[in-house]
């Protein structure tokens, strides 16, 4: 054993950690399964849990591009609302092609607009993002009010085009999504540049990378995944009502928690895989708490809050001043 190559040793150690994490999760799931009178680990419930995780997964994959490059955009939720509605409108005209293209076009264009505003104004992205969220929410509200005034509501798919958001197609969408995000984030210059910009801006410039270009590209790629998530979302919910008052900002909370979970496991899993584990874990958490009879609206949120604090501590281990 002593003669093993250090690379192999590190690989073996990492693989062991991965197995331990997954085994730990499985153990927790088994305990919940017994505690819930064998209702947790059923095929149907697992399908529901994974299905609930699909949309947050796409949004979180988008977020890892923008967040890694330092573009913390709080308007994501409002973009999802507009992109979902646009996807619905095109979907009713052109079928699934319209649904997906509508989401993609709206997602990419709105993220491009955000990127332009963030980079040109040079104000902190989270501040500018709040402003953009208010604008997008207002556009949605104007559309909704106009629809109500004419005796209707915002676009609804009814029973059409609902397959994409349902099992098994929504879960199947995770596979090409996972491959695409892995290639983009880990195997292309876009991902490399994004990670470089997020790590050290000075070094990035010395490497000849244009930080603004990298950040803008990260927003565009983020827009692709937000757009895809929006198309699936529209298919899943059928109709998405626009809201104002920055209510859409809370949409980012679950993906943000998933990013934190992925970061906390960064040494064990690739962040792209970590996101999937994170979103599925969150979906499983709420499902399990409901099965266990934990009241929603109060104690379930307490548990989520505690989880956020816990994974933030884990993900920030080693940083100065943070509890070990």
């Amino acid at each position: 054993m002593g003669d093993t190559h250090p690379m192999l040793q590190r690989f073996g150690k990492r693989r062991m950690q991965q197995v331990l994490v997954l085994a730990g999760l499985l153990l927790v799931f088994l305990i919940i399964h017994f505690a819930t009178n064998f209702r947790f680990l059923t095929g149907r419930n697992m399908g529901i849990i994974v299905s609930h995780a699909v949309i947050p997964t796409f949004i979180t994959w988008g977020l890892i591009f923008s967040f890694t490059s330092g573009m913390i955009d709080l308007s994501i939720g409002s973009i999802v609302v507009l992109a979902s509605n646009f996807a619905g409108i095109l979907g009713l005209k052109f079928g699934y092609v319209g649904l997906i293209l509508g989401g993609l076009v709206a997602g990419v264009l709105l993220q491009a607009l955000n990127g332009f505003v963030f980079l040109k104004t040079k104000i902190p992205p989270w501040v500018a993002g709040l402003g953009m969220a208010m604008i997008y929410e207002s556009i949605g509200a104007v559309y909704s009010t106009a629809a109500v005034r004419s005796g209707g509501m915002v676009v609804s798919l009814g029973s059409q085009l609902r397959g994409l958001g349902q099992l098994p197609f929504n879960v199947l969408m995770l596979v090409p999504g996972l491959i695409a995000v892995y290639i983009l984030f880990c195997r292309t210059s876009i991902g490399l540049n994004v990670r470089a910009v997020g790590s050290d801006l000075r070094v990035t410039k010395e490497m000849g990378i244009d930080p603004n270009r990298a950040k803008f590209l990260s927003m565009l790629v983020c827009g692709v995944f937000i757009g895809l998530g929006s198309a699936i979302n529209q298919s899943y919910v059928g109709q998405l009502l626009p809201r104002t008052g920055l209510t859409t900002v809370s949409t980012i909370f679950q993906p943000l928690t998933a990013v934190l979970i992925a970061s906390s496991m960064g040494a064990i899993f690739n962040v792209v895989i970590g996101v999937v584990i994170g979103t599925i874990s969150l979906s499983a958490l709420f499902n399990a708490l409901t099965l266990l009879g934990v009241p929603s609206g109060t104690w379930q949120e307490v548990v989520l809050g505690m989880l956020v604090i816990a994974v933030t501590i884990v993900s920030m281990r080693g940083e100065e001043g943070v509890v070990k």
């Binding site: 419930n45 919910v237 998405l240 949409t251 409901t290 099965l291 009241p295 929603s296």
Partner: peptide, 21 residues
């Protein structure tokens, strides 16, 4: 299931979890 008015997707999840339970 409280807090199900935060959007259609949230309501779908909460309703489905409730019916599994």
């Amino acid at each position: 299931a409280w807090a199900a008015t935060g959007g259609r997707a949230e309501a779908l999840k909460k309703s489905e979890d409730l019916l599994v339970a």
